[in-house]
């Protein structure tokens, strides 16, 4: 059974101009998916609907066969999916350890160390870290929450090429080694090339590349 499934999803910001129209797709565990598309194509909207940040105007999203609206969006966000954003979205008055501990179901420090932070950096204010380090903290938070699905919205958009490559590797490992379903929305073909499945979002519909 697919971890996530979208059926007949429709979403429009303006009437008669849907950003998503009749989207039907499903996502499996242990794979990294890349959703490619230009800016404004609806990638973030699609992730928001999968992540339970918003609800589709038509259609349904299922997690392991259950409609996420019925099981509760907050519970879905907490227990089923983890979100990684381009702007990291870390709490500015906390350390990396504390940020990761917000939703952690595992020991926090080993995860941070595995992702390349030192113990000293893990206890520093998170705003004093570099962009790459902050994104590692965001990924660590996603991994520590131990959800089956990781959603990443342009996770390498603000990073240099080397760091972006490292982050991509971490996400890929998470899918393959930790059996996570990793869905990355990106316009980077380089990142998409690392994905197991690439989906193109064009005129509101998803197509397998």
């Amino acid at each position: 059974m697919a971890v996530l499934e979208m059926k007949k999803i429709f979403y429009a910001y303006e009437k008669d101009r849907p950003v998503l129209s009749n989207v039907n797709t499903q996502f499996d565990a242990g794979k990294m998916y890349a959703i490619l598309g230009p800016s404004g194509s609806g990638k973030t909207t699609l992730l928001s609907l999968i992540g339970g940040l918003d609800t589709p105007q038509k259609g349904e999203v299922f997690f392991e066969g259950r409609n996420i609206s019925q099981c509760g969006l907050a519970a879905h966000r907490k227990d089923h999916v983890s979100l990684i954003f381009q702007s990291y979205n870390l709490i500015d008055y906390m350390t990396p350890i504390e940020n990761v501990a917000l939703t952690a179901k595992k020991d926090v420090l080993p995860i941070l160390l595995r992702l390349g932070l030192t113990a000293g950096e893990a206890k520093r204010n998170v705003m004093k870290l570099s962009g790459g380090q902050q994104q590692r903290v965001a990924i660590a938070r996603a991994l520590a929450s131990d959800t089956p699905v990781i959603l990443a919205d342009e996770p390498t958009g603000n990073l240099d090429e080397d760091t972006a490559g490292e982050i991509t590797d971490i996400l890929k490992e998470s899918a393959h080694e930790l059996n996570k379903c990793v869905i990355v929305a990106t316009h980077s073909n380089k990142l998409a090339a690392q994905a197991d499945v690439v989906l193109n979002l064009k005129r509101g519909s998803l197509y397998t590349a």
Binding site: A74, H76, L102
Partner: peptide
């Protein structure tokens, strides 16, 4: 509001 959004996205209830 930024912090609130982050906490909501992490599944922490209102």
């Amino acid at each position: 509001i930024y912090e609130t959004g982050i906490l909501l996205s992490l599944g922490i209830g209102k």
